[in-house]
Amino acid sequence: MELQEFISSGVLESYVLGTATTEEIRQVREMEKLYPEVKAEIEDIEASLIRFAEADANPSTRIKKDIEAQLFEKTAAPKKRSTVVNISSLSGPSKWMRYAVAASVGLLIGVSAFTYSLYSQLSKTQVRLSALQLENEVLADEMGKQQLELRQQIAALTDKKIELAMVMKPGSKVVPLKGMDIAPESSAMIIWNTKDKEVYINAASLPTPPQGKQYQLWAMVNGKPVDAGVFTVTEGTSFVMQKMKDMPEAQAFAVTLENEGGSATPTMEAMYLMGSV
């Protein structure tokens, strides 16, 4: 197909809008690699669509903070309006109270003998009510926490699903890293795809490094350590698999603690983890 004909066929628009068929997507991807004009056209279509949707759309600035709190701060309380359940309003103490007071007033006038006991009952009820309200508040708070926990569990589950998909991918090798003497409790898992050379690490069990320090992954290639990139381990960061530098070859992987930004050669005394392929 002629290039110009391809560009003006409308298939690029479908591609960006998400209405293209699998076959069309394959074609577009191929043409995009071959012709910079196709790529430029796609980017232009997308930029126009983005600008078109952006006009008139300004979400409040707190939305970003709320999402970040949910994703990256484990201690954050759930912020969504819809998740707040006001239990105390469901039990309707005020209505109950009104009846109780009305009844007590009526009885006060009629039967003085009951007055004292009724009063005491009423105050007991009031005490019980405020205790109940407190309990409800605690409950609502608890529910919020549980919802947050549930979200985190779902996120963790999704991460595990992704991890599993990566492990199952053809060419993937799982390399367990064991804790060395300075960190016997630690461990990590490397997923290394020998086909596309991608290296991922899950190092959730490593201790948070001191200020100014960062962990660095090394690939042992024919006896020599090759830098595979630094990664962060921060308390409360919801990270699972972190992508490291691609490695065409490796016989083993090791993790050392280095100054922030990483080092050219590994500090052997600060070797935390190691495992061979």
């Binding site: 983005i50 952006e54 759309a57 300004n58 970040e68 994703l71 990256f72 698999m241």
Partner: peptide
């Protein structure tokens, strides 16, 4: 990479659209 900064950039780039 999946860090907080990546989220921030992603959000700033696409949230309005």
């Amino acid at each position: 990479q999946g860090n907080r900064q990546a989220f921030s950039v992603l959000y700033d780039s696409y949230s309005r659209a």
